[in-house]
Amino acid sequence: MNQHLTHQELTDHLLGTRSATVEAHLASCSACSQELYQFRESLGTFRIAVHNWSEAERPVQRQVFPVPRSFDWLLVGAMALVLLTFSLVFWGDRSDNTAQHPPTPTPQQVTVDKNSLAQIQQDNELLSNINQELSEGLPAPMQPLQVADSGTTGKSSNQ
């Protein structure tokens, strides 16, 4: 008799399934009988209130405003979190790769580079040829200046 009624026994009693054992327990246990009484009374009050409400003319409505459903909030939040995580992971991974491994040139880039090296070499050769020709046109150091016009030179020397 010390053990109280189980939930199933109590609910069965509430639903109208009578049992001698449960009846006997209720007769001796004030806690269980009190709980059952309170619960039954509350359900009865609720029933009457709902009946009165539905039979009234038209119950008053509250303000109408659209809001997202709580489930949708969770969904949106979860999606945003997933997107944020992905973007962070992707960004972090990319920056690491850039730091550790310099970008490998593509075959096209390699061809371009080769071409540009050959071009530079050609240009250098051309420039050196030009320099050589120019330097040949100039008098070498310590070499006496060749006078193009002797008459002019003589006059100036006479003066």
Partner: peptide
């Protein structure tokens, strides 16, 4: 399947139901 829903009282206001008590 609807994203937005109108929270318009959940049919019965709890305070309102209290007015219909016996």
């Amino acid at each position: 399947f609807r994203f937005w829903t109108n929270i318009r009282t959940t049919a019965v206001n709890v305070d309102e139901l209290g007015h219909y008590l016996p």
